[in-house]
Nucleic acid binder design. Structure first.
Lengths: 220, 220
DNA sequence: ACCTGAACACCGTTCAAGT
DNA sequence: ACCTGAACACCGTTCAAGT
């Protein structure tokens, strides 16, 4: 959190924290594809090799970056298990939308401590629901798949930051030309039909209702 | 499909088809991270720059590669809409497992014609089911998220080809050390408990049953 | 039309050296 | 302990040139 930029007399010109925070900013602004050790170093006003005193290699840095995103998710929840699961899902979804570059990394990179804590928490919440084990497992995967899948889709069509001229033209082409009418219809359904409709929450509730219902079914 | 390797007198030493097929083989064997234009060219016995007569740039090649994977999915289906959706889902899942490198690309890359045809087909099947529009939409996303999410997870823990020493140690550490007990429990549930249980199909049927039930609910 | 080598502007990382 | 430049082994791609 403290970020000593140059600090004449003191020793630590660089900090792991400062490195990660700067890298995060660069990834947020220009995408992770544009983030290189060299650019990061010059952004920090340091030599490239200085970074390697704080980070083993680039992959480890990216892992740290993704975990930094996971750290933004509030783990404290209120209410019963459906409310709690909902809060975790929404908070994760929002964190991913804040850092779109992290979406493809989310499921690719080995989890860091914050990510593990988040997963642990969601599993804990589901365990508290006393669902039959296979339903709990299904529920966990349905929720995480929904979170990731929906974030990916959000960014694919229509996220303002990721939008390139190229992509907008391709979408327009898809909607204009007659090939793939069902796909065009589906995209339109999302783009104009439901923009102020909270689709993420809507489907999320369907999943949670389904889980709650499974439990009721088993208990009678 | 024809692959002329050197063909002394004839002109086409290279073919788009031959390039894509060779690149696919390399990606399958060594992962897409290891696939470079230069290595691909030498594998083909050509100069790097020769490739650029068939392919605009590396990104386009990767798009073609992913579409090559999509092309493996059989679009012809039999039976009612649940059977048809099931067949498409299973075939897609299998194609992704055959080419694990394609899983993260699947939702990142702009779709090619085969991928579009596949999406169109699934939407068509769901349209044929006469579900209420929002249920059809939910169903489409539930299915695609399940396909992608499950494939990702399969590869994350336990896919033999992607398994590195590194990763096996990390998983072992997770299971051995006491941090994150719920996560460890969850991984164990998948690793030993259900190895011969067809989890993909099981959850897939739950989704399809849920959709069918929604329809029944609305019709009465 | 098809293929190419040289060159440019980048990468991540090793290594040996500086304070 | 902390920082570094030179060097190595790579990248994708432009350009001008060959057949």
């Amino acid at each position: 959190m403290g970020r000593p930029k140059k600090k004449r007399g003191g020793k630590p010109v660089l900090t792991l924290d400062h490195i990660v925070e700067t890298a995060l900013g660069m990834a947020d602004e220009q995408g992770i594809e544009q983030l290189s050790m060299r650019k990061l170093a010059t952004e920090l006003g340091a030599g490239v090799m200085s970074l390697y005193h704080y980070v083993a290699d680039k992959d480890t840095l990216v892992e740290a970056l993704v975990d930094r995103v996971a750290s933004e998710v509030e783990l404290e929840t209120t209410g019963d298990w459906t409310a709690a699961a909902r809060q975790l899902a929404v908070a994760t979804h929002e964190a991913l939308l804040r850092h779109p570059w992290a979406i493809p990394e989310w499921s690719t990179v080995w989890p860091g401590p914050y990510r593990f804590a988040l997963t642990e928490q969601l599993l804990e919440v589901l365990a508290g629901a006393q669902l039959p084990p296979d339903v709990a497992d299904l529920g966990f995967h349905a929720l995480t798949n929904h979170i990731q899948g929906f974030a990916r889709q959000r960014v694919a069509y229509g996220d303002t930051r990721t939008d390139t001229e190229e992509m907008r033209n391709r979408v327009k082409g898809l909607l204009t030309q007659g090939d793939y009418p069902r796909v065009a219809e589906h995209v339109r359904y999302h783009v104009d039909g439901h923009s102020n409709h909270d689709e993420f929450g809507y489907v999320l509730d369907l999943i949670l209702d389904g889980l709650a219902r499974s439990k009721a079914d088993c208990q009678q």
